[in-house]
Write a protein that binds this DNA or RNA. Sequence first.
RNA 1: GCCGCUGUGGCGGAAUUGGCAGACGCAAGGGACUUAAAAUCCCUCGGUGGCGACACCAUACCGGUUCGAUCCCGGUCAGCGGCACCA
Length: 800
Amino acid sequence: MKYEHKPIEKKWQARWEEAGVFHASNDSEKPKYYALIEFPYPSGQGLHVGHPRSYTALDIVARKRRMQGYNVLYPIGWDAFGLPTENFAIKNHIHPEIVTKQNIARFKQQLQSLGLSFDWSREINTTDPSYYKWTQWIFLQLLKHGLAYKKEMAVNWCTSCKCVLANEEVVNGVCERCGSEVVHKVKSQWMLKITEYAQRLIDDLDLVDYPERVKAQQKNWIGRSTGAEVDFPTSAGDKLTVYTTRPDTLYGATYMVISPEHPYIETWAPLLRNLDEVRAYQQEAARKSDFERTEVAKEKTGVRLDGVCAVNPLTGKEIPIFLSDYVLVSYGTGAIMAVPAHDTRDWEFAKKFGLPIVEVVKGGNVEEAAFTDCETGVMVNSGILDGLTVEEAKKKITEYLTEQGIGHAKVNYKLRDWVFSRQRYWGEPIPVVFCEKCGCVPLPESELPLRLPEVQSYEPTDTGESPLAHMTEWVQTTCPHCGGPARRETDTMPQWAGSSWYYLRYMDPHNDAALASKEALGYWAPVDWYNGGMEHTTLHLLYSRFWHKFLYDIGVVPTKEPYAKRTSHGMILGENGEKMSKSRGNVVNPDEIVSEYGADTMRLYEMFIGDFEKAAPWNTKSIRGCRRFLERYWNLLSTLREGGMSKRLEGPFHKTVKKVGEDIENLKFNTAIAALMGLMNEIDAAGGVTREELRVFTLLLNPFAPHITEEVWEQAGFEGMVAQQDWPAYDEAKCRDEVVELAVQVNGKVRARIQVPAGASREEAVAQAKAEPKIAAELAGRTPVKEICVPGKLVNLVVK
RNA sequence: GCCGCUGUGGCGGAAUUGGCAGACGCAAGGGACUUAAAAUCCCUCGGUGGCGACACCAUACCGGUUCGAUCCCGGUCAGCGGCACCA
């Protein structure tokens, strides 16, 4: 009988659904296990072969856990708000809700064809009002606790999406999504105070099992630095405060620089003799796009403030103040003390403007280049600091500044608050109104969800207003506080909102009284294993950790961290080794693979393709190897004979049970499959299988290839479903060979191989090695120096 | 520039704690079966030399530690990802 994947896969997908074998119970005596994948954005292109890599991997984990007796939650849903859908809707004049529905239907059908063991009864959708009700509810809590605020500020504005972007969404000065130019625009925006959690977001990385590269990237992004704030008196009679990580070099500060947006410029305007020049520079800086401002190797520019100067508080010397765009208004205090001798940027600026360069750390040639080494130098020209190391000097000067009341230690972060408003239609409405009398008033929780109104046009506007602003009926409302006339907020939330808490909703997806019940949260939290892409490390992963911590602080969730363990899969590249994309024409459609080879072959290939954590190029020819393996497995049915585990295959079976189990836990799916293939080769050499052998092989293969294994199980006459069996156990003793082969080396080169009993002592092994004729010949007439024996591996005889 | 990662056959990739480099699969070549092809099965498959058993070379490159290094250490080169005028 031939292996025909289509009817088999259809049959078992229906049976699983009927029996509800993958439904997680919120009321179970079993230990819980929560496996999570990043829920997809249902795009118009349908599923990509990259999606199933992650889904299949955790499906294997989930299936194995069920067989190990866990109550497993492996859910799925849709992250469906967002720009591509909205843009498609605009172009084709279809409502985004309809587009979303169609895309989800397609995705769902594709995912189900892969036999993934999702609990479809818990399916969620971020655009469903019963879901975004709770996204809005969390926003109201943030607002109540002062973590959401509105601020007039320069924001990143994508000229093509006509929408504000978060800092995280701007890549190399262009829009992450569409690649268009990003400019600055001053707008009133909702902000979330993620910066308040900066330190905890760093510290609590110690509580979780994440790959080091993920932790490093998050720490890098948060960008903690330690230093000091120092006040410099000015000739205007006030103080200019700077932040520096090198307070030790204070004696070498020969000028100061403030950013073009620094508020003191307005204060000092009446005193400035070159105000026109200053204004011109400010305007020029404002006009520049992010791209121009971040251009590398750009020559320094700046203007000296004529009329105001500062005094170095340690040397007492008067120093000039400059305006330059190499100082950012958004970091530190927007002003710096410049130490050209020990900072590369200050050095470049000083050279260009002919400013004095004073060496205060010995060790370099400061006329040639800035000396920035903190390890080796010794302080000079620095009064009380002379002779100290840089580290000692930092400590001493900070203490001194504190005593004198002119400075103090300070920690700074590169992380900025999260720009949370978007001027688009297809997002969660922000549930607040603006009342003439009461100002900004949050909607009462009882009025949630605040639904998106039906609109005729959801085109973005050039004025920077949300399309919702044109919905007069919807916008004009009454104040929940005083009952007077009020206007609704017309901006919506960013796509990251719904995905920042979705893993909580899966725990109790139909609850209308809370985002999830206390009991459900207590039982399921935290997520035990979360797999996703590296590209979300500083976006989704960081945002959701922030929201979770906030929900922990207000007593909604019981754990400090949302995800106990995070892993990351590598990308699947096109056959040419490049990233798969429509424009490169190297996209592989998973439907075709499933149709031609079957879902089981597809799953197996996706896992066999290479190291799970690294990128791997797709190779359609290689799929045949996985299909052949499944055909060989199928053909075992025709060799089946009654009986238990044969003597010959007992060892290989026990070893494979051990190996496959361990490899799944360590994300080494490729070698787990290789081990099963190796075992298949042994079975063929042995001339077929007994019932017991087929039973164990089927249990091991089931998480990888669930459909064919169920069919074989049934055809072989076993009871029940494989999905409901116990994961096989192994006997450590039976994993060891009775006779092992040792390599025999002479001076580190392999000269012979010998067979020794597994328990042989070092002496026995060495004696047998020496007795080997080839080795005896090698050793003849030479002086023994050393005899090394690694049990089970080799013997090395060192001679002269 | 800074942070992180990677470099192994024609290809994807294995190699537990420093212990037989190349598992498993793809591709390729040869053979069997077939009228033929496909499928399947068997054999070969890092390089050089040799009829041969075998020998030598080989994990990006140079050096070190070690009885022994793909693995540890120092340096160089190449590539990937992230950040980048963050004081």
